[in-house]
Amino acid sequence: MKALNKEVSLLLSKHREKIFELWNKQLILRARSLVEAVGIDETKQMTLDILGHFINVMPDQDDQANDSYQKVLKILAAMSRKMTLQNITPSETAIFVFSMKNSIFPVLQDEFDEKKLADAIMAVNQLIDLLGINTFETYLESREEIINEQQQAFKEVSVPVVKVWDRIIMIPLIGMLDSERTQMMMEILLEALENSQSKVAILDISGIPVVDTLVARHLITAASAAQLMGAECIITGVRARIAQTLVQLGVDLGGVVTRTTMADGLQLALELTDQQMH
């Protein structure tokens, strides 16, 4: 096996030029947008580098700590990360690696007899598959990173804190209020209370389409968190429909003060903080 691997490696080295040409031809044919995204010259350089390292890895392909092996992985990881950022499809990214087979096999076919050929193909196959899997993992990882970043960014913009008056802050809640968003909203609410030393927090629920038992429970939780900090919590935006549902569902808001309009809520907040509109 070892001897064969060495032989394959030598063969690849001898036909390096031909394999390189074939591979690039394949890429232009089957992964055009990838080549365009990376640039033709850069693709050539990348394939050349990978091929060089690949030839070095071939003699003992099981040694994953091998310097060249690590280098190939590094190049592929960088490529795959770039693909994610440029929205290249995962299949094209996969083709980049796997089309290497189509360029190597013809060379093997020309040089080896049938018995040797099967073993050689197996060895090359195994190594390329491993590289392919690694590339794909990186692709997914960077995709996940992007999604996380976007979620983070979304979180930050989705809970704005408005200072409406001295020592009064307001948070307009919009969309769904699930437990994860409640947790995040509470963190932002408490941080704002601590930083501004505000005495009253108004949670405006006008932007929440459906207020059911679960949402009500989240609101109560947020209100009791604010109260533990030493602030008061007023919930505004309780429209007729919401009042109706809450009572019909038998939801007890647990002593949290509610108002229909923001104006009424602000009025109450001013009274609580001994302030007046001038």
């Binding site: 947790q183 509470m186 963190e187 408490l190 209370l193 601590e194 030393q197 505000s198 005495k199 939780t221 009791s224 968190a225 109260q227 533990l228 900090m229 030493g230 602030a231 647990g254 002593g255």
Partner: peptide, 20 residues
């Protein structure tokens, strides 16, 4: 501390609180 107490499920509603 507040967020932890809330998550823990400890009810401290009868207690009066202030910021400072």
């Amino acid at each position: 501390v507040v967020l932890t107490l809330i998550q823990l499920g400890l009810k401290m509603q009868d207690l009066h609180t202030a910021l400072n």
